[in-house]
Computed example of a mutant assay.
Amino acid sequence: MILPIYAYGQPVLKKVAQDIGPDYEGLEQLIADMWETMEHANGVGLAAPQIGRSIRLFVVDSGPMHEEGEEHLGVRKVFINAEILEEAGDDCFYTEGCLSIPDINGEVERPEEITIRWQDENFVEHTETFKGLNARVIQHEYDHIEGILFIEYLKPLKMRLIKRKLEKISKGEVDAAYRMKFRK
């Protein structure tokens, strides 16, 4: 089922999310709904806070960010109770956007490489190092479960330039190609 994506201004987007266990009710369906919602919105990642759940869960499919013919270099995974263990490499800039903040993007500086520990949908623990675009998408979604939005990394001038747009999004004055839920 396609779920509404919570828009900028929703308090759940600014909360640090809680760990979950294998007994989390409806988890399998929730993950399926998150994949469907993300794909419907043409996203490459979606975190549970973006659908109103303050839990440490996100899905990533970075394949579409890779060059045509190299989509197989992407990552398609479910991350539960993730924890970034290490950041490495040079900090790199890349233009990011977010399904919760439609029509706004900006240059974000992030480490080129991360090592992260998480559990998959079967609660099997993994630790892996990701680089480049895969690391960037994972870091963006990880920030969501930490209550951080990509716009918090933007330069002050860029923030002043988008302030009015952010206010409009928080009031529901935005046209998105997918269902959104706004603050009342």
Rank of each mutant, 00 (worst) to 15 (best):
P22M: 05
E25V: 12
G26Y: 05
L27E: 01
E28I: 06
L30N: 02
L30C: 03
L30M: 05
A32R: 14
D33L: 02
T37E: 08
M38P: 12
M38V: 06
M38W: 09
E39P: 01
E39H: 13
H40S: 15
H40V: 03
H40F: 14
A41R: 08
N42G: 08
N42K: 15
N42S: 14
G43E: 11
V44F: 02
L46E: 06
L46R: 13
A48H: 06
A48C: 06
P49M: 01
P49L: 01
Q50F: 06
I51M: 01
I51K: 04
I51S: 04
G52Y: 02
S54N: 03
L57A: 11
D61I: 08
S62H: 10
S62L: 07
S62W: 08
S62G: 11
S62T: 04
G63E: 12
G63H: 12
G63M: 07
M65A: 13
H66N: 06
H66E: 03
E67R: 13
E68R: 10
E68C: 05
G69Y: 12
G69W: 10
G69A: 00
G69P: 01
E70P: 10
E71V: 01
H72E: 14
L73M: 03
L73N: 04
G74W: 00
G74Y: 02
R76D: 06
R76Q: 10
R76T: 07
R76A: 05
K77F: 04
K77G: 01
K77T: 03
V78T: 15
N81H: 11
N81F: 12
E83T: 14
I84L: 03
I84T: 00
L85S: 14
L85C: 08
E86S: 15
